[in-house]
Design a protein around this nucleic acid. Structure first.
Length: 923
RNA sequence: GCCGUCUUAGCUCAGUGGUAGAGCACUCGCUUCACACGCGAUAGGUCACAAGUUCAAAUCUUGUAGACGGCACCA
């Protein structure tokens, strides 16, 4: 079979994906084993407005790797995919489009037309991310694709809302909330991000005290937001503050208004801060609101929802933007001689996570979820069962627990049109009827003259139900088969930024409504940073588009790069790293190409790797041992979510063990008699292999190498799905008979092949030790050749002295050693008998080698070589001597350890002696 | 303010008590018939700093410095 010299990923990628999807390989139904254990994972639903970024690519890779691995192991596997309706984001997109296309605002078209537009937008543009997910190769079940606003999911949302309302956990109340004047909606605490302001100021305002005398007395208050003074309804001081005790009970003539406000005492005030007197604006500050509650103060709202001042702020200010009002008020205070001073002051400002607008704390009536009960469910689960298990555990377990412990009520209403409209209806008298449907509300009210609440729910309210709403939970008694089979899910893979917003809430709702946690393990992956270690962001423009990387290096190489980063750790993106995995993909391609060029008369046969002890050549037993050892280690690494460990194991097994050693060791056997060791440049057709008779031995060797390769491809498949499928399909003899039994009848594909789990019986310590000796010998010879500048084309004789067993191992592998060491003969003896003009080295086990180099040797260089070797050993020996002469060490360290060092000490002494003699002989 | 993470080879990072590792880059040598996206061979680190625990510390404890993250407060 002829294949090109270089792997071209793009060709393989789309074709295989189409075929996998069309054949239903991604669905759990492909699994024919009724007793199969299930494995399920739900994707963190990307925003419908979103496009793929590196964070997605990372988390998707981890999830797909796990899913493919479990599927190959025979689990009934569901990787559920879906998209989030992303309330604010989508509303903004659609609003923008409406403005651009029709020059209209949402209010112009009305709610119904607007949401219709939003659905249109979703159908048209919302598919981008799902196409990108296909490009990534994710083995998600498209037949179960979900959208958070699907009818079933919406039903689940209403059900949960009604149940929480009925038990009193959802309530409507008037509170200070986080208001975004740009998006014109309330936000939860988690959607507000604090940011340091560059030029914060602290304004000291003098408030005139109402006095029975005519002397003007003032009380100075400090504030960062002077504009709120128009809403002040008191000034507070600490009750123990002697400076002000006489003022308590008196009043202030509030400047710029015609109001008089009281001076009150409250413990909240810290005398040390500012002037020790605080202006109190209950309608525009959460702490002030508390004080207002305690003292029965009026709550005067002075701002509109768009951040402008309202009538209550007074005619002079009404209509001004809040920041214009600030400037204006400061000017007016100055005019009145009431501005004491302005200080620079570092202040952190709350900003809208989405649009970065400064949040206005505003008094507003909203819906809230009381979190106490839900919180306790999650906390108990953590305290009693240590669940969910975070990977890595530090720091997430602690952060998660601490957050729960300090949890406050959740503001769930949003002043948007795109989302789940709150299932609450009002009659003209203002009575509220919370119900699953309008009909149910009418029934409760005994009238159909009701108006549904205008607001929608926080997007995270529906996301919180994702692990079960997607599996068919609607709260009805008939639970679906999927829910039965796949809930709870096995593992959640997500970023740390949504630990509170999403993960914690899924835990709470899962426990509450299904009585069972939604997942066992939570992998919190790291953040992909740019090459300077900075977070990628749109504003910085330093983002790396995964699709560009796919185009340049291939999806598989990108996946290996992402999986190859340590779980949970941030890492700086380096193209060089993907490049090395692109090279790795090419290495796999070419190794396969070589095996295929020499596959005549052979086909993949698992039986060819089952050796009874002692049977099979050393190289064969060795590679089979390495294969099985690697398989065991890879499975363990995946079980413990050490993806990078698995990547390293596979990389080194394939490249070092399989390519660098095994292929080279058996090359002669594989190419024997074919006259076709390889195509020359790819241009000429080469010799047709069918012209040549393939011997039984050659065919057997070819079968073995093909089989090892086939197993390696299977192990690599969860990480590199496209390349491995592409190559696997080309191997002679592959069939659906290699599938896990659960998929016996499915059309043949590597993605359903049985995953190698590693056979302990085929791990052969003896073979690995013997091969180490062969490898050590070859390496030493190569080292001498290189340092003595012996041309690659020049063959040398190799003399080896060593034990009987070593000599017999080497003798058995003579032809291989000669080839790889580029030697023309190997002389084995008990002691070395070589001329003085030889280059020498020592081997493990009191063995030594020499290469006679009459006329070629550079004595000075050889002396240097030997001295270097001695010096290196001496460093180690000094350390060993130190340790072993320490009585404490010998007494207290485990005997095993002490013995180990003694053995090593003896060996070094012996080797040093040998090298010393060699050196002396040169003089 | 509170909590936490990181600091290891030129770069990016593994490594969690017992002789320091990888990839890339660097140096040297190779058109060796799968692959130059390759092959072979080197070089390169007092594991941020200090003290402590231990027979033994990159690894555990404490402190210091620097980088970063989360939470809270902010008149």
């Amino acid at each position: 079979m002829e294949i090109p010299k270089t792997y071209n990923p793009k060709e393989a990628e789309l074709d295989h994906y189409r075929r996998w999807e069309a054949n239903g390989f991604f669905t759990p139904e492909i699994n024919q084993n009724k007793d199969a254990e299930s494995f399920s994972i739900v994707i963190p639903p990307p925003n419908v407005t979103g496009t793929l970024h590196m964070g997605h690519a990372l988390q998707h890779t981890l999830m797909d790797t796990l899913t493919r691995w479990k599927r190959m192991l025979g689990y009934r596997t569901l990787f559920l995919v879906g998209v989030d309706h992303a309330g604010i984001s989508t509303q903004l997109m659609v609003t923008r489009q409406l403005k651009k296309d029709e020059h209209k605002s949402p209010q112009d078209v009305g709610r119904e037309a607007f949401t219709a537009k939003a659905w249109e937008w979703k159908e048209k543009y919302g598919g981008e991310i799902t196409q990108q997910i296909r490009r990534e190769g994710l083995s998600v079940d498209w037949s179960r694709e979900r959208f958070t606003m699907d009818e079933d999911l919406s039903k689940a949302v209403r059900e949960v809302f009604v149940r929480l309302y009925e038990e009193g956990s959802i309530y409507r109340g008037t509170r200070i909330v986080n208001w975004c004047p740009k998006d014109k909606t309330v936000l939860s605490d988690l959607e507000v991000k604090e940011e340091k302001a560059k030029d914060g100021k602290l304004y000291y305002l003098k408030y005139p005290i109402v006095s029975s005398y005519d002397i003007l007395q003032t009380l100075t208050v400090a504030t960062t937001r002077p504009e709120t003074m128009l809403g002040d309804t008191a000034v507070a001081v600490n009750p123990n503050d002697e400076r002000y005790s006489s003022l308590i009970g008196k009043s202030i003539d509030l400047p710029l208004t015609d109001r008089q406000i009281p001076i009150i005492a409250d413990d909240y005030v810290e005398s040390e801060f500012g002037t020790g007197a605080v202006k109190i604006t209950p309608a525009h500050d959460a702490n002030d609101w508390e004080i207002g509650e305690r003292h029965g103060l009026e709550k005067l709202v002075i701002m509109n929802h768009d951040g402008t001042m309202n009538e209550a702020a007074g005619a002079e200010f009404a209509g001004l933007d809040r920041f214009e009002a600030r400037t204006r008020i400061v000017e007016r205070f100055e005019e009145l001689g009431l501005l004491e001073k302005i200080e620079d002051y570092e202040v952190t400002l709350p900003r809208c996570e989405r649009c970065k607008t400064i949040i206005e704390p505003l008094l507003s009536e909203q819906w809230f979820v009381k979190m106490d009960g839900l919180r306790d469910l999650a906390l108990d689960l953590m305290r009693k069962e240590n669940s969910p298990r975070f990977v890595p555990e530090v720091p997430h377990k602690k952060v998660y627990t601490a957050w729960l412990e300090n949890l406050r009520d959740w503001t769930i209403s949003r002043q948007l049109w795109w989302g789940h409209q709150i299932p609450a209806w009002y009659d003209d008298a203002g009575n509220v009827y919370v119900a699953r449907t309008a009909e149910e509300a009418y029934e409760k009210a005994g009238s159909s003259g009701l108006r549904q609440d205008d607001d929608v729910l926080d997007t995270w309210f529906s996301s919180a139900l994702w692990p079960f709403s997607t599996l068919g939970w609607t709260g009805e008694v008939t639970e679906t088969q999927d829910l039965e089979t796949f809930y709870p899910t096995d593992v959640l893979v997500t970023g740390r930024d949504i630990l509170f917003l999403w993960v914690s809430r899924m835990v709470m709702t899962g426990l509450k409504f299904l009585g069972e946690k939604p997942f066992d393990d939570v992998i919190i992956h790291g953040t992909v940073l740019d090459k300077n270690g900075q977070r990628m962001s749109k504003t910085k423009g330093n983002g790396i588009d995964p699709l560009d990387v796919f185009d340049k290096y291939g999806v598989d190489a990108t996946r290996m790069t992402l999986a190859g980063s340590a779980t949970g750790v941030d890492f700086a993106w380096r193209d060089e790293r993907v490049e090395s995995f692109r090279n790795f993909a090419n290495k796999i391609w070419n190794a396969t190409r070589f095996c295929l060029m020499n596959s005549e008369g052979a086909s993949v046969d698992l039986g060819s790797l089952k050796f009874n002890s002692g049977k099979g050549s050393l190289a064969d037993r060795w590679i089979v041992s390495r294969l099985n050892r690697t398989a065991k280690a890879v499975n363990y690494a995946l079980q413990t979510y050490q993806f990078h460990e698995a990547v390293q194991l596979l990389y080194h097994f394939f490249w070092d063990d399989f390519c660098d050693w095994y292929i080279e060791l058996v090359k002669d056997e594989i190419t024997a008699g074919s006259g076709y060791a390889g195509a020359d440049d790819g241009d000429s057709p080469g010799v047709k292999p069918e012209a040549v008779e393939v011997s039984k031995e050659t065919a057997a060797s070819r079968t073995r190498i093909l089989t090892v390769l086939e197993q390696a491809l299977r192990m690599l498949h969860p990480f590199m799905p496209f390349l491995t499928e592409e190559l696997w399909q080309k191997l002679p003899g592959v069939s659906n008979g290699m599938h896990n039994v659960a998929y016996a009848t499915a059309e043949r594909t590597i993605m359903l092949a049985d995953y190698p789990s590693g056979d302990e019986a085929l791990i052969d310590e003896k073979a690995e030790n013997e091969m180490s000796a062969v490898i050590e010998l070859i390496s030493k010879v190569r080292n001498i050749r290189s340092e003595m500048n012996i041309k690659p084309s020049e063959k040398v004789p190799v003399h080896v002295a060593g034990s009987d067993s070593l000599r017999s191992i080497l003798a058995e592998n003579e032809s291989k050693i000669l080839k790889l060491a580029r030697a023309d003969r190997m002389v084995l003896a008990e002691t070395l008998e070589v001329p003085k003009a030889s280059a020498r080295a020592v081997l493990t086990g009191a063995a030594e080698i020499a290469i006679p180099l009459e006329g070629l040797i550079d004595f000075a260089k050889e002396r240097e070589r030997l001295e270097n070797q001695i010096a290196k050993l001496d460093v180690e020996l000094q350390r060993l001597n130190g340790q072993l002469s320490n009585a404490n060490f010998v007494e207290r360290a485990p005997a095993e350890k002490v013995d180990e060092l003694r053995v090593r000490q003896t060996e070094i002494i012996q080797q040093t002696a040998t090298l010393g003699q060699n050196l002396a002989a040169l003089a």
